[in-house]
Design a protein around this nucleic acid. Structure first.
Lengths: 206, 206
DNA sequence: ATAATAAGCAAGTGCTCACTAGCTTATTGA
DNA sequence: TCAATAAGCTAGTGAGCACTTGCTTATTAT
């Protein structure tokens, strides 16, 4: 018999529990009973706070979106040239995922999922948001002469984003068997070096 | 009442039906009833051919593995320098996925899935196999002077594989809204050009 | 031709799922 | 202090799940 909490606190608890559980259970196999057990509340009590499971998914995705916005904003505050800010944005994204491993599970949950209509649009919005930030930084970096002139900003972003996504996929499949940020920094710096203008210039990646 | 078939043919039908269905239903939500309906056979009849659903997953993964080996082998027969063979391997992988869109769903199915123990090891083996082929080609390309000398073969492969995986993820999320091979070829060629030795040399990507 | 076998069917079994109904009890504001 | 309200509980409901049972019928080998 847990201590009673206000509905707001309980809702936050539930969202937190879902994010925790998604580190080890796939979204499609995460049942409301397991969520209730994790929160420490009866199964029925869950539905006093969220009318349907879909509403839980919606709140979870809102929380994920907030965390992402926070991580990206923090990375952009660090300052430095656009090239460094691009690197920091990549690292911020990997750091976010390392701290919230539910994210890849939510993003990759494929096909027609019950919650598909709640989760998918926010996933797309998130990815588009990250892409936009990367394209903007790529454009600035190119203008500043930090990146080769023959590269389109969206291609720069597509290559970097792909490298991040591929790395996260391998990290998830490997059971998170390596340090995501460390390995990511290595690859991102390598890629930024490849995209540097042809006259070799020092790279601040170490 | 479908015409009777031999067990071997029926098993092949079932595997085929699963691959078809996985283009639109996630692996965790694909029920044996839906498979039976797609095959055109009663639900119970399925279990005459496969003792458990896990056995279906195993056969499906074997089929996927055969298709991948075939696609990769075919790409390596084309010939050309190691650099071109690396490009062709990437395109073969994308072509395979375009023809069998079940593959990303199977690879990305996260977390503890019922069939996890049947599917996961083969997914890992497949990815490791592709990685090995890419690393070997990268090593050859580097030795032939087609790629920068300061790049490690595994890093070359990791970058390229990441670009492929990121692209496939975006393709899946977008509802397969663009041509995977066309866009992939563009990005792969771009990346190969970035990894070319510093003295600019012609690239056979068009 | 016919017995043996192989492929199929309808109708279940017990389980888990998301969600509900109806009651109980802790907190709170007048 | 004590009703009103908000948060909780137990015990369901029907639907869908993987899988089984017992019977039927098509194919095939003698």
């Amino acid at each position: 018999m847990t201590a009673r909490k206000s509905a707001d606190l309980r809702r936050a608890d539930i969202v937190e529990a879902v994010l925790d559980l998604l580190a080890s259970v796939s979204p499609e196999r995460l049942s409301t009973s397991r969520i209730a057990a994790k929160v420490g509340v009866s199964h029925g009590a869950l539905f006093r706070h969220f009318p349907t499971k879909d509403d839980i998914w919606r709140s979870v995705m809102e929380e994920v979106e907030h965390r992402a916005q926070r991580a990206w904003a923090k990375a952009s505050e660090i300052g430095g040239g656009p090239r460094d800010r691009l690197r920091m944005l990549c690292l911020a994204q990997l750091g976010l995922i390392e701290q919230t491993p539910a994210i890849p599970a939510l993003v990759m949950a494929p096909g027609r999922h019950v919650a598909e209509d709640s989760v998918r649009p926010i996933v797309l919005r998130l990815m588009a948001g990250l892409m936009d930030r990367m394209v903007a930084l790529a454009r600035q970096a190119k203008a500043a002469g930090n990146l080769r002139g023959d590269l389109q900003p969206d291609d720069i972003a597509a290559l970097l984003l792909g490298i991040l996504q591929g790395l996260v996929l391998r990290w998830s499949l490997s059971g998170r068997g390596f340090d995501l940020v460390t390995e990511g920094d290595r690859l991102v710096c390598l890629q930024l070096r490849l995209m540097a203008p042809s006259q070799p210039q020092e790279v601040s990646c170490d």
